[in-house]
Amino acid sequence: MRRFVLWVWLILMTAPDVGAADEWKLPPEKTTLRPGPGREVVLGQCLPCHSADYVTSQPPMVRAAWLASIEKMRSKYAAPIPTNSVALLADYLTAQYGKPDPGP
């Protein structure tokens, strides 16, 4: 019996990996967010529902456009972002992934 168990163990350990396990496993997330004030808010309130590349792949946007995105996430996608976090979030996104408002 012990010998049988050993054989099963050997077969399991040495059987060629045909990729059966990998076929159902996704590669890890890798994108990280730039450091800056407000980063923790993004980590805590945006990234539970999507990966960071949803943020980092956007074109550079002005603060009003980031605010519109935040508002869409709150009103349409139930993002639990408290009202008093919105300004900090918009500041971070504009500073790290945005662009300044066009001049007058």
Partner: peptide, 14 residues
């Protein structure tokens, strides 16, 4: 590279 895929252009991961 994702399961059953060759390396493709990744826009987002989750």
């Amino acid at each position: 590279q994702y399961p059953q895929k060759r390396p493709l252009i990744r826009l987002t991961s989750r």
